[in-house]
Design a binder for these strands. Structure first.
Lengths: 342, 342
DNA sequence: GTTAGCACTCATTGAAGTCGAGTGCTAATT
DNA sequence: AATTAGCACTCGACTTCAATGAGTGCTAAC
């Protein structure tokens, strides 16, 4: 539908605007070496591109700026993947330099480095604990009235919940319960615990414990808590340096959104694996109007665990960011797979 | 040193500037009902106040603005404590409405509500875990090479550490070790654990475990927790609405500071109990030049546990904020004391 | 000691003018 | 028929200038 020349012009406009943040005019385009025709020709082509919705003017006599549709086309068809330089690669690999056991540390460091490498804001969704299999349950009474339940998964993740002890329960009941739970629930994925408790554990509890149902509900309640994956951020304030956010009110809406984790989940919780680019209003979020979000998933083996994302202005260096995310998510996946699958 | 009239004028200037954020002129002052003398008189007095360093001009013919010294004097001598209205009180008390076990939840909610009530940024330093006494240690092997150690305190706080198992250690060693640790360390404050391990546990371990010293160091290493108290924030973006921060670069330095937790600790980690007000450069931090920080401590019984703080512009409503912090820290202390000392 | 009066300062506002980078359109050129 | 040169036009950005008004300090009168 678009001629080669139009594609070329669109690409150069987007590239130039990403670099300079200034509307691109026909004259400055005609001076580029890729472009061999006159500014008048370019003006004609630009008028067509504008009519088709790929570029826009900021006012009647201004240069052109890519529209969201323009960015979308650029990302889908015109992007030349950037080859990472050695420095970038070695910086990313420094994430894995130390011996680490804990996912969290790696994840946190990834977020930090990603934001430093891009000057945008990075968001990393920590590994979903729900796939982890239960290794051990422990219940430790704190005093007459309350106890803390501890759940350890095979990956070394620890969850804990404080709860009130049902008044009728004594120490031996508690011990029996813990034994039953461990016997029946070890190896079960966290997300299946609740099911399993009611189906298998219930009958056993009934046989051994007085007031078994009170105990049952107390335990099940403790488990019902949302095992929400943790979010990690890097470079929250980087957006302040972007010229499109020199306006306080835009900054405010954006930072307010970043500080509300519950608003972030729907943005980055992506169903399918791989790299996704969402441009401006594609994010369905008014605070993201001038922003793009690029997400990638990381996994252990075939199982996708979490998401790493970069939030930047729509005028973002798509090519570079995609390459970085690609590279990091691959590395993360292979390191985690190694760590986790032995 | 200052005459009564000068004090009155200083007070009215500070009050007015806090309200309006505009330099205060002699004419507008003379119209206030508290003030019964002419603008010319006021001008003379203001000239003196300026010479003494309590107020400043923004330019030769502008009204006056309080200097840091002026705020300091105001806070120390002129402050009329604001009586909280019923609504404020009931909002604060709503923090404790639900039954809660976990300090963290209360603390988090406190930060949120404090920022909503003041429109400034709130910072709450969570309860120092180091005072807590150990209730139970548990070590759970994950696989051949690693295990996770879990420390539960009498307050229900749970810490966990993953570590490599020394190769020579087998299951029965581990069990013995855990027994020894529990026997010897239960009731010991977290901060004293390390000491105690080397002094008392070491000899016992030697008697019962082969390669006891490897085990010893592994455990001790795990314990070397930087049990850094957690920081909670509320209203991080509130400062964006303050007129003195309509300038992007000021906003940036401030937000960057807020996002570096390690820079916050020295600001709010206060030795002595009670309310403290630090104005502008008294904070010894260039990012805080136009900010004041008011801190209060909360405690369990007589033991001071943590800090709640409000970060606002120097032009902050000192009176209101101090009252709010006073009230909340009292409430926090009594609730926590109740919860914790039974 | 207090105040009225006056000359002076300076940030803010808005109007008027210039500049220049951009456009669209038309007519000439290839 | 496609390309380009040329030209009138638009509009944001910047500069200049004058007017306004809220403030000051100082002096002289009360």
């Amino acid at each position: 539908m678009l001629t080669d020349r139009q594609l070329l012009i669109l690409q150069v406009i987007v590239d130039d605007f990403i670099r300079s943040a200034q509307p691109v005019g026909s004259r400055s385009l005609s001076k580029k070496e890729e472009i061999s025709f006159s500014s008048a020709t370019i003006r004609n082509e630009m008028a067509d591109l504008e009519e088709l919705g790929y570029i826009e003017k900021t006012h009647t006599s201004s240069g052109r700026v890519p529209s969201e549709k323009g960015y979308r086309y650029y990302v889908d068809h015109l992007l030349s993947p950037q080859v990472l330089n050695k420095q970038d690669i070695s910086i990313i690999q420094s994430i894995f330099a130390e011996k680490i056991f804990e996912f969290e540390k790696i994840i946190q460091k990834s977020a930090k480095i990603l934001s430093e490498l891009t000057n945008y804001t990075s968001i990393v969704l920590g590994p979903a604990a729900s796939f982890n299999k239960l290794k051990r349950i422990q219940i430790i009474p704190l005093n007459k009235e309350s106890a803390v339940a501890i759940f350890v998964t095979d990956s070394g993740h620890v969850e804990n919940r404080t709860f009130y002890l049902p008044p009728s329960v004594d120490a031996s009941d508690l011990e029996k319960t813990v034994n039953i739970l461990n016997e029946r629930l070890t190896g079960v994925a966290l997300e299946d615990l609740n099911d399993k408790i009611y189906k298998e554990v219930a009958t056993l509890l009934r046989q051994h414990i007085r007031n078994y149902d009170l105990m049952l509900h107390t335990i099940a309640d403790s488990l019902k808590m949302p095992v929400n994956e943790k979010l990690f951020f890097g470079g929250k304030t980087n957006m302040l340096s972007q010229p499109e956010f020199h306006d306080i009110s835009k900054i405010r809406t954006l930072l307010q959104m970043i500080d509300h984790e519950e608003w972030i989940y729907p943005l980055i919780k992506n169903d399918s694996a791989g790299i996704h680019v969402k441009i401006g209003r594609e994010n369905n979020n008014s605070a993201m109007e001038n922003c793009s979000l690029i997400t990638a998933t990381y996994s252990v083996g075939a199982e996708s665990l979490g998401t790493i994302a970069i939030l930047g202005p729509t005028r973002m260096e798509y090519s570079r960011v995609i390459s970085l995310l690609q590279f990091l998510s691959n590395d993360l996946t292979s390191v985690l797979t190694n760590l986790y699958q032995k």
